[in-house]
């Protein structure tokens, strides 16, 4: 039985990190209907900023983490201001193409730094002895990752539900013209969405980097790896990202634990999330919590 619970705990840990990684996609899509293809690069960038501040500048890691959230917040806001602001009102596909270009530019910039081709790891700042209960163990790294994820997701949920700016963002997401008519600055909301997406990506990057080590290829791959989570949850739903993230994490762990290695099967942990995604989308094309839009022609 402890085997089952270990898989469940691992699934929740992995799933919550997926959820945080997926949040950046959702925040941008929610306000501007744009999929940011460069999300994986921002995730990696956040992790590298934490490392650089901690190891090269010598700032304590907790402060580095907070600083990285602030830095990526403003960096992502600048990216929106420089590259995407002027595309407001242009076809969505043009904006998506710009994010593909942005991905290449960020790749190039990171390859110019040592992070592009060197492996690093954060200095150990948590106890290495795991927490164990009834045969189920969780490392401090994972536990802290889950706690940070929960805090960030809770903060975002509160922000969208109660803060004036968050409500403005939801309004823009619903109807841009109506929002403008009541005095909401749509460009400002877009900038804020990118900034918050950058912040969440940095948080995810730091957590993933602490688990896997800092390898650029591994980190940026999470931008694509969480795509099924985003689609499954519904592109514009924060709660959807959380639920779908945890579902995906659990599916992966249970597939690896019970299916892989049996009946000649292997690698189902990587394939099964996509199979489940297809099946769910057959019945719920907008994802589990996505907005069901009805267009009257």
């Amino acid at each position: 039985m402890s085997y089952f619970f270990q898989l469940m705990v691992s699934g929740i840990v992995v799933g919550s990190i997926y959820a945080l990684s997926a949040l950046g996609f959702v925040l941008i899509y929610k306000s501007s209907r744009v999929l940011n293809i460069a999300h994986g690069q921002i995730i990696a960038g956040g992790a590298f900023i934490v490392f650089a501040l901690t190891v090269w500048v010598g700032i304590p890691i907790v402060l580095s983490f907070l600083a990285s959230l602030v830095i990526t917040f403003f960096l992502a806001m600048s990216v929106e201001r420089i590259f995407l602001r002027r595309l407001i009102g242009e076809p969505i596909i043009s904006v998506i193409m710009v994010t593909i270009g942005l991905m290449s530019i960020l790749d190039g910039v990171i390859y110019l730094t040592p992070f592009g081709s060197m492996n690093y790891s954060f200095p150990e700042f948590l106890p290495t002895t795991p927490l164990s209960l009834g045969g189920v163990s969780i490392s401090w790294t994972q536990l802290v990752g889950v706690v940070i994820t929960a805090i960030l997701i809770g903060a975002f949920s509160w922000f969208f539900k109660s803060a004036t700016l968050g409500i403005s963002m939801r309004a823009v997401s619903d109807d841009q013209l109506a929002s403008m008519s009541v005095g909401i600055s749509v460009p400002r909301v877009f900038g804020l969405a990118w900034a918050l997406a950058g912040l969440s990506a940095a948080g995810a990057g730091a957590i993933i980097g602490n688990i896997t080590g800092l390898n650029y290829e591994t980190l940026r791959a999470f931008g694509i790896a969480v795509f099924p989570v985003v689609i499954l949850g519904g592109l514009d739903s924060i709660i959807g990202a959380v639920v779908a993230g945890i579902i995906m994490g659990l599916i992966q762990q249970f597939a690896a634990g019970y299916v892989d290695g049996n009946w000649g099967l292997n690698g189902t942990a990587d394939v099964l999330p996509y199979v489940i995604l297809l099946v769910i989308l057959l019945f719920k094309p907008h994802g589990l919590f996505g907005t069901h839009e009805i267009e009257r022609v």
Binding site: L7, S10, V13, I17, A225, Q253
Partner: peptide, 19 residues
Amino acid sequence: VEVVEHGKDLDNSALLQRL
């Protein structure tokens, strides 16, 4: 006993316990 072609896993608990 088994050949494992790995993916980009954040947690190998399931794999390790299975092995």
